[in-house]
Deep mutational scan, measured.
Amino acid sequence: MSIQHFRVALIPFFAAFCLPVFAHPETLVKVKDAEDQLGARVGYIELDLNSGKILESFRPEERFPMMSTFKVLLCGAVLSRVDAGQEQLGRRIHYSQNDLVKYSPVTEKHLTDGMTVRELCSAAITMSDNTAANLLLTTIGGPKELTAFLHNMGDHVTRLDRWEPELNEAIPNDERDTTMPAAMATTLRKLLTGELLTLASRQQLIDWMEADKVAGPLLRSALPAGWFIADKSGASERGSRGIIAALGPDGKPSRIVVIYTTGSQATMDERNRQIAEIGASLIKHW
């Protein structure tokens, strides 16, 4: 058993032996400061991975655009179909130039040979490839079927209504393609630790998130040596930015963190910096 498999397999085991986890309101002070700095709403939640207890939250039940963070949920739905014998990670999917949409750094290189379902999930999560996400959405029946999958998990909040890139429109008060921090954190925890997916599929999902290559300026920039993080970021119109993550010290995840912001006029660099500073406060007061 690899170190990674050891880590995921023991998450339920550690729940019975973990020390009490204490919240630190200092992080919420930073979240509120980020709102002031960005001139935008910020949603935040910090969840204990083992118990599911909410440690801190700010606007946990307000809607925010999901942006590309939905791609983790999408690959969770794909893995659920794999577990049920309805899909194979090794199945190759062929597509054409007409299928390519904006920001497809991986799929645009494989027009001649296509990509496997496994490769598409990797591209969608680690590189946020939009065509990969659309191709995967097609395999499960489209955005409405992803919403149905989430409903069956008990998440009646999170919804996907459109495809890439239209889902990134982020119109104020538009509930399409949105979630709430509390709903996203709970759903992510179920995917990573619950019985919905097999152990192998849970491991695969967290491996893809751990290999994320496009979230460096966010929480990863504040991470001390030896800490673990598996994450997925997102960005969209109207100053929207977000990240969902499982992270913790000693090389294993122990908390879920979800951060969303929307409605800012700030630059992408400034949005990144504010999220990184929230992460730094979280780690300092861990």
Score class of each variant (00 low, 15 high):
2 S>G: 09
4 Q>D: 08
4 Q>K: 15
5 H>N: 14
6 F>L: 14
6 F>H: 10
7 R>A: 13
8 V>Y: 15
9 A>L: 11
10 L>S: 11
10 L>R: 02
10 L>V: 13
12 P>H: 13
15 A>S: 15
15 A>E: 04
15 A>C: 13
16 A>Q: 11
19 L>H: 15
20 P>H: 07
24 H>I: 05
24 H>D: 08
25 P>R: 07
25 P>Y: 11
25 P>S: 08
25 P>H: 09
25 P>T: 08
25 P>L: 08
38 L>D: 05
38 L>V: 05
39 G>D: 11
40 A>G: 15
40 A>P: 02
40 A>S: 10
40 A>I: 06
40 A>T: 09
41 R>H: 10
41 R>F: 07
43 G>I: 00
43 G>L: 00
43 G>W: 00
44 Y>T: 00
44 Y>P: 00
47 L>A: 08
49 L>F: 10
50 N>Y: 11
52 G>R: 02
53 K>V: 14
55 L>C: 04
55 L>Y: 08
57 S>I: 03
57 S>L: 05
59 R>C: 00
60 P>N: 06
61 E>K: 12
61 E>S: 13
62 E>R: 04
65 P>Q: 05
66 M>W: 00
66 M>V: 11
66 M>R: 00
68 S>G: 08
68 S>A: 00
70 F>A: 07
70 F>S: 07
73 L>R: 00
73 L>T: 06
73 L>K: 00
73 L>M: 08
74 L>A: 05
75 C>L: 01
75 C>G: 08
79 L>M: 09
80 S>N: 13
80 S>T: 11
80 S>L: 12
81 R>W: 03
82 V>R: 05
82 V>S: 07
82 V>E: 03
82 V>K: 04
83 D>L: 00
83 D>Q: 07
83 D>A: 02
84 A>S: 14
85 G>W: 05
85 G>R: 10
87 E>S: 03
88 Q>C: 13
89 L>P: 06
89 L>R: 01
89 L>G: 04
90 G>P: 07
91 R>W: 02
93 I>M: 11
93 I>R: 02
93 I>S: 01
93 I>E: 02
94 H>V: 14
94 H>Y: 14
94 H>N: 13
96 S>V: 13
96 S>C: 12
96 S>E: 14
96 S>T: 14
96 S>A: 14
96 S>H: 11
97 Q>R: 15
98 N>D: 09
99 D>A: 11
106 V>F: 07
107 T>A: 10
108 E>V: 12
109 K>E: 13
113 D>V: 07
113 D>T: 11
117 V>I: 10
117 V>C: 02
118 R>E: 08
118 R>I: 08
119 E>D: 10
120 L>S: 02
121 C>G: 03
121 C>A: 06
126 T>A: 09
126 T>H: 11
126 T>L: 04
130 N>S: 05
136 L>I: 06
137 L>C: 03
137 L>T: 05
137 L>H: 01
138 T>S: 15
138 T>E: 15
139 T>A: 13
140 I>N: 00
143 P>Q: 02
144 K>C: 11
144 K>R: 14
145 E>L: 09
146 L>I: 07
149 F>I: 07
151 H>T: 12
151 H>L: 10
153 M>D: 05
154 G>V: 02
156 H>R: 11
158 T>I: 01
158 T>L: 00
159 R>S: 06
160 L>T: 06
160 L>R: 01
163 W>Q: 07
163 W>S: 06
163 W>G: 06
163 W>M: 09
164 E>Q: 01
165 P>S: 05
166 E>P: 02
166 E>G: 10
167 L>R: 01
167 L>M: 12
167 L>T: 08
167 L>I: 09
168 N>I: 05
168 N>F: 03
168 N>K: 03
169 E>K: 07
169 E>A: 11
170 A>S: 13
172 P>E: 13
173 N>K: 10
173 N>T: 11
174 D>V: 03
175 E>W: 09
175 E>M: 12
176 R>N: 06
177 D>E: 01
177 D>V: 01
177 D>F: 01
178 T>L: 01
178 T>D: 01
178 T>C: 05
178 T>P: 00
178 T>K: 01
179 T>H: 00
181 P>A: 03
183 A>R: 06
186 T>I: 14
186 T>M: 15
186 T>E: 14
186 T>K: 15
187 T>M: 05
188 L>R: 00
188 L>Y: 05
188 L>I: 09
189 R>Q: 14
189 R>S: 11
189 R>V: 06
189 R>L: 10
194 G>R: 07
196 L>P: 12
196 L>G: 13
197 L>I: 07
197 L>H: 02
197 L>Q: 02
198 T>Y: 06
198 T>I: 05
199 L>R: 15
199 L>T: 15
202 R>K: 11
202 R>V: 06
203 Q>R: 14
204 Q>R: 09
204 Q>L: 13
207 D>A: 15
208 W>M: 03
211 A>C: 12
213 K>G: 09
214 V>A: 08
215 A>N: 03
215 A>D: 02
216 G>H: 07
216 G>D: 11
216 G>Q: 11
218 L>P: 03
218 L>T: 03
219 L>M: 05
219 L>A: 01
220 R>H: 02
220 R>L: 01
220 R>K: 02
221 S>K: 13
222 A>G: 07
222 A>P: 06
222 A>M: 10
223 L>Q: 02
223 L>T: 11
223 L>K: 03
223 L>D: 00
224 P>F: 00
224 P>A: 02
224 P>G: 02
224 P>V: 01
225 A>G: 12
225 A>H: 14
229 I>L: 05
230 A>G: 07
231 D>C: 03
231 D>A: 05
231 D>N: 02
235 A>T: 05
235 A>V: 05
236 S>G: 15
237 E>L: 11
238 R>V: 11
238 R>N: 15
238 R>S: 15
238 R>I: 10
238 R>A: 14
238 R>E: 11
241 R>D: 02
241 R>N: 06
243 I>Q: 01
243 I>G: 00
243 I>V: 10
243 I>Y: 06
244 I>Y: 00
246 A>H: 01
246 A>Q: 02
247 L>V: 09
247 L>R: 00
249 P>L: 02
250 D>A: 13
250 D>E: 12
252 K>N: 10
252 K>M: 11
254 S>C: 09
254 S>N: 08
257 V>I: 14
260 Y>V: 03
262 T>Y: 10
262 T>R: 07
263 G>A: 12
264 S>V: 04
264 S>I: 05
264 S>R: 07
265 Q>E: 14
265 Q>A: 14
265 Q>H: 14
266 A>T: 12
266 A>G: 09
267 T>C: 11
267 T>G: 12
268 M>A: 07
269 D>H: 12
269 D>Q: 10
269 D>I: 09
270 E>V: 13
273 R>C: 08
276 A>T: 06
281 S>Q: 10
281 S>D: 05
283 I>L: 06
283 I>S: 02
284 K>M: 11
284 K>Q: 14
286 W>F: 05
286 W>E: 00
